[in-house]
Write a protein that binds this DNA or RNA. Structure first.
Lengths: 208, 208
DNA sequence: CATTTTTTTGTCCATCGGTACAATACTTTT
DNA sequence: AAAAGTATTGTACCGATGGACAAAAAAATG
């Protein structure tokens, strides 16, 4: 596994050499071509088009951690949403960087503790309120379905594939299709896309 | 370091033995007495009083990961809020379990990327709405796209098929696919289903 | 116990969706 | 003028999707 380092300020490379062995610093183009799956790419927000770069690098199979001199909630969210697995201060200590690398290369997600604490402290209530708020407009649709069908419908409304639903409910893919056919008929929709749109508000509340 | 495993369904123990060496399955009381600092306790939500157990186990110095058959935002936040360091599907593959263990025992938090992004987005939206007008969150996604891509994305967000989009924009189906591939890459989604979910609020605004 | 509903699974097949290779023409930027 | 980005279309391939026939076991209802 190799570390890549994209920034406009080469002076930072020294910090990374202290923390890691295989450090390859260079421009975005080089990294995009050279980065292999499971490599770790550290991308600075001082690079102007970093939002475009993240999905591209992720598409190569590499893991992306976004670096910022001025950590910001909005920016962190954006980074994670685009596929980054971490968001950390550019000048974080080498020990921290090692920790981040360990976590993100193992499918984990790294965000600052302040952000996490803020989220845990603040959003729990708002999520709950949301869930109680509007979950009745669509219950009329869901009430048309059987217990099992409801489970399938909600899973599909999250964007899950038949295979994923099958794994989740521990049934065969064929059975998922059977339930789906029944659901389509009952709710008078032609496919899973229309189903999502019909249940969209519900899906937004649940999500997983 | 030892793994502890609390559930009401003993049939799952086999899964854990595949993933880990030192597995100690048993009742809550035994674990509470036997668990040592830095041990890892896997706690299933099928245990009726799991919310009460989490703080108690954490107080012993052990790391807690909560297992759920039906992952859910509220439940995940509740678990983390009570002191759990991870929240994962009960039937996750052994490799995943190993990674979860690695992350949480290294001061990391495991919640899954999509969930985290969604949670952050949820709390963030409410914070932002005070300062700014409405949902610029999605126009921000759309601003990453070109003019033509935006048109395709919005059409697909209505649930249109490729053929329908082609008719609508008077281009071939092949071209629609080309634009879609670009869209998927830029917005870091795997297919049109996830795209719909990402642009759902926008679609809602348009149809209303 | 008989009937109905629900849940489950099977094979076959046509269509859709998405990617992997392309290539060409037009526009914008440098 | 050269380079880069955008829009367009082509063929081929493969996995996902949904319907058309099924059938059978389990659960609920009478």
């Amino acid at each position: 596994m190799k570390h890549w380092f994209i920034t406009v300020d080469g002076s930072l490379k020294g910090r990374w050499k202290k923390a890691f062995e295989n450090v390859g610093s260079s421009g975005p183009e080089t990294v995009l071509q050279s980065a292999k799956p499971n490599d770790l790419v550290w991308l600075s927000t001082t690079v102007k088009n970093w939002p475009q770069l993240v999905p591209l690098i992720v598409a190569e199979g590499a893991v992306v951690v976004v670096l910022s001199y001025a950590p910001d909630d909005r920016e962190a969210l954006k980074a994670l949403d685009l596929g980054a697995r971490g968001y950390v201060h550019t000048l974080a200590a080498p020990e921290v960087l090692k920790q981040v690398a360990l976590v993100v290369t193992n499918q984990g997600v790294w965000v600052g503790q302040e952000l996490l604490a803020k989220v845990l402290g603040g959003s729990f209530k708002t999520l709950q309120q949301r869930n109680q708020g509007g979950s009745f407009q669509n219950s009329e649709y869901l009430s048309l379905l059987t217990e099992r069908e409801r489970g399938v419908a909600l899973a599909v409304a999250q964007g899950a594939t038949n295979k994923e639903v099958a794994r989740l409910l521990d049934i065969t893919e064929r059975t998922v299709k059977a339930h789906l056919s029944a659901i389509f008929k009952k709710l008078a929709v032609r496919d899973r896309l229309q189903l999502i749109l019909k249940l969209a508000p519900v899906a937004e509340q649940m999500s997983s």
